[in-house]
Computed example of a mutant assay.
Amino acid sequence: MASEDFYLISFILVAAAATLTTRLLPFAFLGKQSHHPLVQHLGRYLPAGIMALLVVIFLLQSGHWQQPILGLDALIPAGLVVALHLWKRNALLSMLAGTACYMLIQQSFL
Rank of each mutant, 00 (worst) to 15 (best):
Y7L: 15
Y7E: 15
L8G: 13
L8P: 11
L8E: 14
L8F: 13
S10L: 14
S10C: 12
S10D: 14
S10H: 15
F11S: 13
F11Q: 14
F11E: 12
I12Q: 15
I12F: 15
I12P: 15
L13G: 09
L13Y: 08
L13E: 10
A15V: 06
A16K: 01
A16F: 04
A16P: 01
A17W: 03
A17Q: 09
A17H: 05
A17D: 09
A17F: 09
A18P: 08
A18V: 09
A18W: 09
L20N: 14
T21Q: 10
T22H: 11
T22P: 06
L24S: 09
L24G: 07
L25S: 01
P26E: 00
F27D: 15
F27L: 14
F27H: 14
A28G: 11
A28D: 10
F29C: 07
F29A: 11
F29D: 06
F29H: 09
L30N: 04
L30I: 06
L30Y: 05
G31L: 00
K32T: 13
K32Y: 12
K32P: 11
Q33F: 12
Q33C: 10
Q33I: 10
Q33P: 05
Q33D: 10
S34N: 12
S34V: 13
P37L: 02
P37T: 00
L38C: 12
L38D: 11
V39D: 03
V39P: 03
Q40V: 02
H41P: 09
L42K: 01
L42I: 02
L42E: 00
R44T: 07
R44E: 07
Y45G: 03
Y45N: 06
L46C: 00
A48L: 06
G49W: 03
G49K: 06
G49I: 03
G49N: 04
I50Q: 02
M51K: 06
M51L: 11
A52E: 03
L53K: 02
L54F: 04
V55E: 07
V55N: 04
V56S: 02
F58C: 03
L59A: 08
L59N: 08
L59R: 01
L60S: 07
L60C: 10
L60N: 09
Q61A: 14
S62F: 12
S62C: 10
G63P: 02
H64A: 14
W65C: 00
Q67E: 08
Q67A: 11
Q67L: 10
I69E: 05
I69W: 02
L70C: 08
